[in-house]
């Protein structure tokens, strides 16, 4: 069996048509993970101890179970207790929650790198807790970890084929269907790999640029 260009060109649009779905799911899940990650970070530092421990337990649990199991749980098991989500919502939520636990670790490392004196200065200036977070701590905690945060966008993007397992028609699902009906898998699967490369590489370059910028430091940045 050799590579068939004609077949490849014929099926390319069919597979590539899933591009908006894949991008949509990626961005949706990424937003969930960015926001929920921050919420988890705060909850874990809460002075209300039960909340802090519960959050810690949740993070450890999610991080140490496979995303595929979580996906099945959300899509197939949750309806049993009355929570039914369509496959897109289930996919976005599962990936979003899974990666929020990684992002909360990233936020945490950024926050830990802010010197204790900054908290004390904020206190001495009588900032409220919310002002301290958003005016003093986070503006210093986030820039150094922007590359890591950006990197998780790529990792999350590459995780989207997982959703094939619950029938989301992303690249791999499309390719699989075409392959099955034509008894040719070489071209469709290769095209899937190519599509991931085409989308990942420019994003990686962009994130790299962001990284360079965040390395310039505070002094040269006007805001």
């Amino acid at each position: 069996m050799t590579w068939n260009w004609e077949f490849a060109f014929e099926i390319f649009p069919e597979i590539a048509s899933a591009i908006w779905l894949v991008i949509g799911i990626t961005i949706g899940a990424y937003i969930v993970s960015l926001v929920l990650g921050l919420v988890l970070t705060f909850a874990r530092r809460s002075s209300f101890k039960p909340l802090a421990y519960l959050t810690y337990g949740f993070i450890e649990f999610v991080r140490s179970t496979p995303p595929l199991v979580q996906l099945f749980f959300v899509y197939f098991a949750l309806p049993a207790i009355g929570i039914s989500l369509n496959k897109y919502a289930a996919g976005i939520l599962t990936l979003g929650i899974h990666y929020s636990t990684y992002l909360s670790e990233v936020y945490r490392s950024g926050i830990d790198s802010v010197p204790k004196g900054q908290w004390e200065a904020a206190r001495a200036m009588n900032f409220s807790k919310i002002q301290t977070w958003f005016r003093v701590i986070l503006p210093q905690a986030i820039p150094p970890v922007i590359p890591m945060i950006g990197n998780y966008l790529l990792v999350l993007f590459k995780e989207t084929p997982l959703l094939m397992a619950i029938g989301v028609g992303e690249f791999l699902q499309e390719a699989q269907l075409i392959g099955a009906s034509n008894f040719r898998y070489l071209e469709p699967i290769t095209i899937v790999g190519l599509l991931f490369l085409l989308l990942s590489y420019p994003s990686a370059v962009l994130i790299n640029k962001l990284e360079q910028r965040s390395k310039l430091g505070f002094g040269t940045r006007k805001n």
Binding site: P115, A121, A124, N126, S128, Q131, R135, P139, Q140, F218
Partner: peptide, 27 residues
Amino acid sequence: IGMVFQHFNLFPHMTILRNVTEAPIHV
């Protein structure tokens, strides 16, 4: 109460002016 620290603890992500105006405006 106001305090000046041994290690200054200025806010590094703000200009000098903003370091001094931030609390008067927001607090």
